[in-house]
Amino acid sequence: MNFNQAASLYKLGVLPSEKMVDVAISALESGSDEEAIVMLAIETDKTLGTLNSLFEECLRVLNLDVLSNKETLEYAAQHYASLANSGAISEVEFGFKVGSFHDEYKLEGMLWDAFQNAMWYEEAPYEYGYPKDLESNRAFQAECLQKIRIIIERYAA
């Protein structure tokens, strides 16, 4: 995870506190010498009150405290796509992770398609109008997974 992705997850309210320090350490290992990042990386008090303020200072220094909603969703999708590519989450989980932000951020385009396909994958055996026999359901679900996989590949690139 990079600072762009961490900033987006922070804005979305889903960044675990331990990842704040991890992303700072990674930035230092990549050559950053920003004082705010150093301070976050070496902080021993792991309480959210301390880490949040240090992380927010890093975001200000890196000009990531002003991400647009579109940038926020794009960076979050990149993070979840990398998790899907590594096998840490499934295609369907990717769709539901990005879909969880729809109420506040109104997904559209490929992210909306990923969410829709994840829902269709899960609902295929139950909803009226979907394939009813087992073989058709499996084919329908495979098609949903393939569509999500294409979206994951786009965001992981």
Rank of each mutant, 00 (worst) to 15 (best):
I152S: 04
L28N: 11
F140E: 14
W112Y: 15
I42C: 10
M119T: 13
L111N: 07
Y155V: 09
G99K: 01
G95S: 05
Y75C: 10
E56G: 07
V66K: 15
Y105S: 02
V23R: 00
F3P: 02
Y121K: 02
V66S: 12
N137P: 06
E71W: 14
L83S: 11
Q5G: 00
A7P: 01
L64T: 13
S136P: 00
Y105A: 08
M1V: 02
E34I: 11
K147I: 14
Y105V: 08
N2T: 12
E135N: 15
L51M: 03
T44R: 01
Q141W: 10
K11G: 06
N63F: 07
A124I: 13
Y155P: 11
I89V: 06
G129K: 07
H102E: 06
L62D: 03
M20S: 08
P16W: 07
A88R: 00
R60E: 14
E34C: 14
S68W: 14
K70F: 14
S53H: 07
N117C: 08
E34G: 06
K19T: 02
P125C: 02
Y80I: 02
D45Y: 05
V23K: 03
D22A: 12
F101S: 09
L48D: 15
R149D: 07
F94M: 07
N69W: 13
T50G: 01
L111E: 02
L51H: 03
S136W: 00
K19H: 14
S68E: 09
L83D: 15
M110C: 10
G95R: 04
I25H: 04
S86D: 15
L9S: 06
L40G: 03
T47G: 13
G13K: 03
S26V: 01
M39P: 14
Y155C: 04
E18K: 07
A6Q: 08
E34L: 07
V21M: 05
T44C: 10
A156P: 05
Y80C: 09
E35D: 13
Q116L: 01
L28G: 12
A24L: 10
M1G: 08
A41Y: 01
N137K: 04
N137S: 11
